[in-house]
């Protein structure tokens, strides 16, 4: 391994195989599907519930703490991987996190144009559309049009920044704290944070 390996680029000749455990899970899935013991639809139904209900709750807790605690927000923006690890959300593959903050002037949105790199520890499993070639290709070229298809109208005077994830660096959006939430605790605030608001394709809930 070279001393500057944090700068290295994707190796395009092959795809790094996942860890042995993940390979064995894939092997089981292939065998059991081919033999008709399980269907991909049934597996997807179970996973889907967790993808929409479970994973993003981690990120929501991080966002809520950043809204409630200015010192934590500073740590989260300056040293995101470490600040997120304070919750025990640790990326075992060792990728670094970067948190990009929405402001009245800037709206951030996250994509992985190359494949479907995603911040698993904070957002869980990526939604199907995130992995689609349509989203990956179009959000870079015409982000405002794509966002409006998600029902998100970004005012003309707000700059849209698109962040392209890599195998080594994963992005999460820190949405703006909604108005009318003064005095709310972290638990209540976390309920306002949606998965899509942390990808940048949706808004937060209003109290």
């Amino acid at each position: 391994m070279s001393h500057d390996d944090h700068d290295h680029d994707h190796d395009h000749d092959h795809t790094d195989p996942p860890a042995e455990t993940a390979l064995r899970v894939k092997a089981l899935e292939t065998l059991l599907t081919r033999r008709g013991y399980v269907s991909t639809e049934a597996l997807d139904a179970v996973v889907d519930m967790f993808e929409t209900k479970v994973g993003p709750r981690n990120g929501a807790r991080v966002v809520a703490k950043a809204w409630a605690d200015p010192a934590y927000k500073k740590r989260l923006l300056e040293r995101p991987t470490e600040a997120i690890a304070e919750f025990g959300f640790i990326n075992r593959q060792g990728e670094h996190m970067r948190v990009v903050e929405n402001t009245p002037r800037v709206h951030n949105v996250v994509v992985c144009t190359l494949c479907s790199c995603y911040p698993w520890p904070v957002l869980g499993l990526p939604p199907v559309w995130y992995k689609s070639s349509a989203y990956r290709a179009r959000v870079v070229i015409e982000p405002r049009a794509v966002l409006s298809e998600f029902g998100l109208k970004v005012p003309e005077d707000v700059e849209v920044r698109v962040w392209d994830s890599t195998a080594e660096l994963r992005y999460m959006v820190l949405p703006e704290r909604p108005a009318g939430t003064d005095g709310m605790g972290e638990e209540q605030l976390a309920d306002l944070v949606t998965r899509d608001s942390m990808i940048g394709t949706g808004g937060t809930r209003t109290p």
Binding site: E29, V38, A42, L43, V46, V47, R57, N58, P121, A190
Partner: peptide, 28 residues
């Protein structure tokens, strides 16, 4: 669990979990 929700650290864990639930439901 955090806040009552189960948490998966990596996708393969969710897949292994889903396979187990599905095989059980299929009566295996």
């Amino acid at each position: 669990k955090t806040g009552g929700d189960p948490v998966f650290a990596e996708p393969w864990q969710a897949e292994a979990f889903a396979m187990t639930v599905t095989l059980h439901q299929a009566g295996c």
